[in-house]
Design a protein around this nucleic acid. Structure first.
Length: 863
DNA sequence: GCACTTCATGTTTTT
DNA sequence: CATGAAGTGC
């Protein structure tokens, strides 16, 4: 569990304790006046402008608690919409905390999509669907579109399916059905976009399927075409709350407007400065226009920030103030100024990763510049006790209104208000995050952290349910649950290989189409007609039989349909759980074996994932329930309890907070990203700037921004200019650290570095040019002048050299060594200061010699 | 139908 | 550079 989750859990728990003390309205405790107003203004439209870290979720959940506690609404009369399942879950938990018991009901608290699924299952027939429709994910969508593109005889290379998917998605975000796509967009996709869109919708209807966009659009259509039904729901949802309103797209806006227009009891919460999903269809305009859309709206600004120190907040405000057309908020804090935002330039991306790695090690151990760190910070008692108790350093308990906290020196403090806590140590790893603009930037850090054995976790990346093996397995499950799921059939007919190649599959398609049946049935007909022979026919028949058998097993008590003896015997297995069934399916289909026989390095991991999938099944009643769940939920957080540094994109970081944040790669072209600016011009730049704002405001205590003078982009070394956002940082809130790689080396950097490093650095000429760029940036100069550069520490290279000399001498081929992360192994190759080591558990890895010690000296690792 | 090659491509991604 | 998709040869 990450830090924010835990602190929330604690807060919820402690609040529920208060509730039991029978106070009248516990959810009002500790709210500031603005929050309180937001909670108590129940009727009419409310726009809650909540800046970063201003207790938005707190206010939102308290508002719901207030609605319930005052009897204004019953739990099922509140429609509360979020964007993520995580946010919905958190809200549910918090309300539970306020109310002192689990919230029964609240069936309409969820994501837009989850709520729409619910509505659509009820009224599917109104849009020509059956209520058991399947929800396609992006992969299914593109495959389907690819078929349509090929069928329409369009060059699939010039007009790829992914592009069409993107276009249609954009249209759906704007609530454009094929007929409503405006004239100016009609030349999209070689002029065939609209046609393909219409065909795609047709295909979906025949497949009894919808995509994510449809969930919204179908419901909108139902409401528009059935006034009585709409009215019913308008009456039903007496109060509407929307989180992250700045992220809503046109379709979501229309959806909300339909439901809210009768009573206008709609409260939206958002921050225009944190709108970072414009490229995905989010319309900042929705929040900017709210007062016009809902006349008489009360605008409440939450401006007191409880998260970041003064300097951090001021730096963030300075950057965002460059944007135009903001609703405008002035964030302030009672907190101390704290440490200034730290800014540092590096020679290149690797140096940057190396430096951050060392900073983290120092911070973690309370070493180096963190050694004397006694950070006095005003925070709430809960936060502090929670923070410290994670390290097992303190115990905490309550006596009435008094918290007892046993720190190194025992302190007794009253519960309310803020206190100054000396923090006599650095940071735990899970209090540190590195936030990057693009996920490929993570690599440098992963490489580095692996080498030095620093535990890290990557948030985002390929998600669990998007992985090939998981999708394959789920296709099997889908097919068992609904044999007419053609997309699932296509996916797995030949996985594992059954000798059913392109040709055979095309024949199945053809047969199915001729008879107007599903692929499963088509395949059976094909076999019966003898249209397919040999090994393929045999394998196909086997698959079809298996599918039927699994389906019977899935349906519990069997009707007397089993024709053969062994099927009857299988009936004995009717009490079988869906978990066992899943295992059987994966086994008998040969899918497990398929990966067991696979010798690629990923195979073991994939098998591991399959095991996890089966484990995840346990939480559901049956396969159907599970499939419904995963089609909407795509999150994936596995925790092993080891504190780790978090690596993620700025986008993924929205809504989170960390005591220490590193923001690397602030270079023009990277951040702000060139593409964002090319595509959307000023609009794109402003969104990038909001991203910068989001990044800085994630930090509670220490925020470190960095850039590199050189970076390898697509294999080519490029010299980089510091980001224009660096120019926009208000100098008085920034401390410039001298880049170690650029200090005290003269021109002899390449020569002084190790041979390997020397090679990686490229020519001297290039070096000089790049260095000039770094120092010529206006922002850099200004900051230098303002701050006066301070010497930071001994240059990195020089420190390493000494150790390297020892390390290289120590390890020869054949030596048994120990590595902090990979364990014991044997040196198989030596190249300068890099060793190839065959580890007993981790396989063969390249590591830097100084991070490995002779096996018998494993006790005193030199870091 | 499969293994090996060449070739283009290269943000962000709540559901 | 490094990854994935499409193309080529067996």
């Amino acid at each position: 569990m990450s830090s924010f989750d835990e602190s929330d859990a604690f807060e919820a728990a402690s609040l529920s304790v208060r509730a039991m003390a029978a106070r009248p309205a516990p959810y009002l405790d500790g709210l500031n006046p603005a929050q309180r107003e937001a909670v108590e203004t129940l009727n009419g439209p409310v726009l809650m402008l909540a800046g970063a870290g201003t207790g938005k979720t707190r206010a939102l959940t308290a508002r719901i608690a207030h609605l319930l506690a005052t009897g204004q609404a019953r739990p099922n009369e509140i429609l509360a919409v979020t964007f993520t399942n995580k946010a919905a879950r958190e809200m549910r938990n918090r309300i539970g905390g306020f109310m002192g018991h689990a919230v029964e009901g609240m069936p309409w608290l969820g994501t837009f999509h989850a709520i729409c699924v619910k509505l659509l299952r009820r009224h599917a027939e109104l849009v020509d669907l059956k209520s058991n429709f399947t929800i396609l994910d992006t992969d299914d969508q593109t495959r389907l579109m690819k078929q349509l593109i090929i069928a329409a005889n369009i060059d699939e290379k010039r007009w790829p399916a992914r592009m069409l998917a993107g276009i249609i998605d954009t249209w759906k975000n704007r609530a454009w059905t094929p007929e409503k796509v405006p004239e100016r967009e009609k030349d999209a996709f070689d002029g065939k976009g609209v046609m393909l869109y219409a065909e795609y919708q047709d295909r979906l209807r025949t497949l009894n399927a919808v995509d994510f966009g449809d969930l919204l659009l179908h419901v909108i259509r139902i409401f528009q075409e059935n006034a009585d039904l709409l009215e019913q729901y308008q009456r039903w949802f007496r109060y509407i709350l929307v989180d992250e309103y700045q992220d809503t797209n046109v379709a979501q806006y229309l959806w909300l407007r339909l439901l809210a227009q009768s009573h206008s009891n709609i409260c939206v919460v958002g921050d225009d400065d944190q709108s970072i999903y414009g490229w995905r269809g989010a319309e900042v305009g929705n929040i900017l226009r709210f007062e016009k859309d809902f006349p008489g709206a009360k605008v409440i600004r939450l401006e007191q920030n409880y998260r970041s120190t003064g300097h951090i907040l001021a730096a963030a405000s300075g950057v965002i103030s460059a944007n135009k057309g903001r609703l405008g908020k002035t964030l302030w804090t009672e907190d101390d100024d704290g440490e200034k935002v730290r800014l540092i330039g590096h020679w290149d991306g690797e140096e940057e990763a190396r430096w951050i790695g060392e900073e983290i090690e120092d911070a973690q151990a309370g070493r180096g510049r963190f050694r004397d760190r006694v950070n006095v910070r005003s925070i709430s008692l809960q936060q502090e006790t929670d923070r410290l108790s994670k390290g097992g350093a303190v115990s905490k308990h309550r006596e009435g209104d008094i918290h007892k906290v046993n720190l190194a020196r025992s302190q007794t403090l009253s519960e309310e208000g803020k206190h100054n806590f000396p923090i006599p140590h650095g940071f735990e790893l899970d209090e540190i995050a590195i936030l990057v603009r693009a996920s490929h930037q993570m690599r440098a850090f992963e490489d580095r952290f692996l080498t030095i054995g620093l535990p890290y976790r990557v948030i985002g990346g390929p998600r669990f349910y998007e992985r090939m093996e998981i999708r394959d397995a789920m296709a099997y499950f889908r097919l068992v649950v609904s044999p007419e799921d053609d997309l699932a059939f296509e996916r797995i007919v030949n996985v594992p290989k059954r000798g059913l190649g392109e040709k055979a599959q095309a024949t199945i398609q053809q047969t199915a189409r001729q008879h107007g049946v599903s692929l499963t049935e088509g395949a059976q007909i094909l076999i019966d007609e003898g249209g397919i022979g040999g090994k393929g026919a045999k394998e196909l028949q086997k698959l079809l039989d298996q599918l039927q058998r699994w389906a019977r097993m899935a349906h519990g008590p069997l009707r007397q349909v089993g024709p053969s003896d062994d099927l009857i015997e299988e009936d004995g297995a009717r009490g079988m759980s869906h978990v066992e069934l899943a295992e059987i399916i994966l086994d008998e289909s040969g899918y497990t074996a398929h990966w067991q026989n696979d010798k690629t390095p990923e195979a073991p991991g994939r098998l591991e994932n399959l095991k996890e999938l089966v484990k995840a099944l346990e939480e559901f009643e049956n396969l159907q329930g599970f499939l419904e769940h995963v089609s909407l939920i795509m999150d994936n957080e596995t925790e092993d309890g080891v504190p780790k540094v978090t690596l993620m994109t700025l986008h993924a970081a929205k809504g989170l907070e960390f005591p220490a944040v590193f923001l690397p790669g602030w270079e023009d072209g990277l951040f702000p990203s060139q593409r964002a600016m090319d595509g959307e011009g000023l609009k794109g730049l402003e969104e990038e700037r909001r991203l910068a704002y989001v990044g800085i405001t994630r930090a509670e205590e220490v925020c470190t921004i960095s850039f590199a003078g050189n970076r390898r982009v697509y294999g080519q070394w490029q010299s980089q200019m510091p980001s224009r956002f660096i120019d926009e940082l208000p100098a008085e809130h920034v401390e410039v650290l001298t880049p170690p790689g650029l200090y005290g080396h003269g021109g002899g950097m390449s020569a002084a570095a190790s041979p390997v490093d020397g090679m990686m650095r490229g020519s001297d000429l290039h070096d000089r040019a790049a260095r000039a760029d770094v120092y010529n940036s206006p922002g850099w100069k200004r900051l230098q002048a303002n701050q006066g550069a301070r010497h930071l520490r001994q240059p990195q290279e020089a420190r390493n050299m000494v150790i390297d000399a020892e390390a290289v001498a120590l390890h020869d081929i054949g030596a048994r060594v120990f590595h902090q992360k990979f364990g014991y192994g044997e040196v198989v190759e030596v190249e300068g200061d890099k060793l190839s080591v065959e580890f007993e558990k981790a396989g063969t890895k390249k590591v830097v010699a100084r991070y490995v010690v002779a096996a018998d000296a494993a006790g005193d690792v030199p870091f």
